[in-house]
Amino acid sequence: MPSMLRDGSRRDVLAAGGLAALAALLAPRMALADEKAVEAEIKKLYGEKKLESGRIKLDVPQIAENGLVVPINVEIESTMTADDYVKAVHVFADGNPQPGIVSYRFTPECGKAAAATRMRLAQTQNIVCVAEMSDGKLYSTKSEVKVTIGGCGG
């Protein structure tokens, strides 16, 4: 796997330099999403509907040493019955080349609106999570992850 080797060597260079400044020099080569891009994505899905706070437990590390594999666990408070459940959850990042990370669709059969996966983060940024309930209500929350080594191979 030559690409892995190359990635590895870049990482060694970064480690040897040991400087965040070097990473900062490398990062801006990519066109990155920003807060506006995330807002635009949410608008595309839900228009101008109001986002309330609460009910979402977004579990991401405060500091991620390796941006290539960052665990993300979301859980939304809900009884998950046929007439009151979490329909969808969308996760965005405001500092990746593209804002989308993952969109989940739950059903009452899940019993619990929780899911875990792993994501790539290019740099330190905010993770934004929006949950849509079966009654149409929207909730959102965000959390910052500090990334030591970015996860978007150059």
């Binding site: 290539l68 989308g100 899911a115 790539r120």
Partner: peptide, 18 residues
């Protein structure tokens, strides 16, 4: 249960749900 994954999902993708 369904998940739409975007390019930001890590290699060898893991997914857990209930």
């Amino acid at each position: 249960f369904e998940a739409d994954w975007f390019a930001a999902i890590s290699a060898n993708p893991y997914q857990a749900f209930f």
